[in-house]
């Protein structure tokens, strides 16, 4: 019968030769390969004690930035959510009340902001769409989890704390340079 494609192979069921049947030569051959690898350079590193150098524009875990005074930059404009190809971002907006000027930079702010990390493909389009320089992808790696719920990151984990600022200056500089 004529094969449908030229990639198909005919399976042969031929009997083994004497060398193959002896078994030991094949074992020695395999052990030689294993032994050779003892003296080669290791390809793995001892993470997390050791880390590999990251590119300045590595797209890891997101951060919602605060401005220099400590107010949240995000105004819940929704451009990251509409730019997101995986539809991972959802948010609700609220109006800033008098007296909250120190907390939020503009009249409107995100009362909830959630990223579903299981949907996120870390493409960085949210960062590109953001008109307020509020969301950035960083060189941190998303921690693993055991429940689906633990992968939905809200504002409590996304917004940087005032005491622990996330450095995005390299990445920032890269973008500014490009412009």
């Amino acid at each position: 019968m004529k094969p449908l494609t030229n990639r198909s192979k005919t399976v042969s069921n031929k009997t083994m030769t004497l060398m193959e049947r002896l078994y030991l030569p094949a074992i020695v051959k395999g052990m030689a390969i294993t032994l050779r690898h003892f003296f080669k350079k290791k390809v793995t590193i001892r993470y997390p004690e050791e880390t590999r150098p990251f590119s300045p524009i590595y797209r890891g875990l997101h951060v919602l930035k605060r401005d220099d005074t400590g107010a949240e930059r995000c105004t819940a404009c929704g451009l990251c959510a509409i730019a997101c190809p995986a539809e991972a971002i959802t948010m609700d907006a609220a109006e800033r009340k008098p007296g909250e000027e120190r907390l939020y930079r503009e009249e409107k702010y995100a009362s909830t902001y959630e990223i579903n990390m299981l949907r996120c493909i870390f493409c960085g389009l949210c960062e590109e769409a953001c008109p307020k320089e509020a969301i950035f992808l960083t060189d941190r790696i998303l921690p693993s989890g055991t429940t689906r719920k633990s992968f939905i990151w809200g504002k409590d984990r996304l917004v940087e704390t005032e005491s622990n600022r996330i450095d995005i200056s390299k990445r920032h500089f890269y973008y500014k340079d490009e412009k």
Partner: peptide
């Protein structure tokens, strides 16, 4: 409708 939703959502 103030700040309820962006129109495209």
């Amino acid at each position: 409708f103030r700040f309820k939703s962006r129109v495209w959502f």
